[in-house]
Design a protein around this nucleic acid. Structure first.
Lengths: 153, 153
DNA sequence: CTGTTTGCAAAGGCTTTGCATGAAA
DNA sequence: TTTCATGCAAAGCCTTTGCAAACAG
């Protein structure tokens, strides 16, 4: 993505968030702006602690409580998606313009690789028909070792 | 399963657990016997709290700490499997003689339905080959509403 | 007896929340 | 000025752990 597109995307995200804030009678605060900016400068999946660390490193101190509250707003607004990576804490990823996908999670280094497949979607339809189940969402993740991390012997 | 088979199965499980205890120089205690018995009298998926409740109801008081510790032993011995059902706490299911399967989880009532499919296994092989990833385990779950629980409008 | 196991209560990790202060509208 | 947001610290939820007393072998 070129630098111009990146800026355009960031502008779009800010627009979407501010529109959400407006519709819900929420205020545009310094803290929300800082978190939004930082969140969309991250490429990978991230958790609360790493976001806090990045903000502190940039001397943009925001409390943990505000981060939790703002990540909830960002998720509700559709800008972020909360994902379960088989660990005990919450991870987040960017949502805009990204189709649903599955995750490969490295047990060694924690690296997350995304992949998509229509097979899963078809399978979900079949299974749900069989059990008369109304699907809302699904998660499929493969945990193992990435190329760089050899399995322990 | 007939009553006789049920008793036979329980005996087999007890045997497997006691053998595990012996191999690891762990002791056969009243508490471990009570937990083992209760765990294998449960048909569905269960969590720590419901197990504790069932034991108390039967006037078999065992502390939460001991339940946590014993469930770990049961899992390590291969008698139980810990599963992630998209909730914040740990759930367990019986492991002996049961092949890997996936879960349908009802968001309404919490009911869990198991299903198996070779499609997922094949898919895992393909995806892992593509990314040069050594799989250890996978989870696939569909969250939605079961027949009895209508989706909220 | 000796080393485990138990139960209790405290603590740990992550997340939420009550409340007073401070900022947005 | 009014209402909402923030930061702090406390609390909540689930799980783990240190320790003294109880128990298995």
């Amino acid at each position: 993505m070129s630098r111009n597109n990146k800026i355009a995307a960031e502008t779009a995200e800010r627009g979407q968030f501010y529109s959400y804030l407006g519709q819900h009678k929420l205020r545009r605060t310094q803290e929300r702006a800082l978190i939004l900016q930082e969140v969309f400068s991250i490429q990978d999946h991230f958790d609360v602690e790493s976001l806090l660390f990045r903000l502190r490193r940039k001397h943009h101190p925001v409390s943990r409580a505000t981060i939790y509250r703002t990540l909830k707003h960002l998720t509700d607004s559709g800008l972020l998606r909360q994902v379960d990576l088989g660990r005990s804490r919450a991870f987040f990823e960017h949502a805009p313009g990204r189709q649903h996908h599955e995750h490969l999670v490295c047990i060694g280094c924690g690296k997350v690789v995304e992949f998509s497949t229509v097979t899963i979607e078809k399978l979900q339809t079949l299974v749900c028909e069989e059990f008369n189940f109304k699907p809302v969402r699904h998660t499929y993740q493969i945990l193992g070792y990435c190329e760089a991390c050899q399995p322990p012997s």
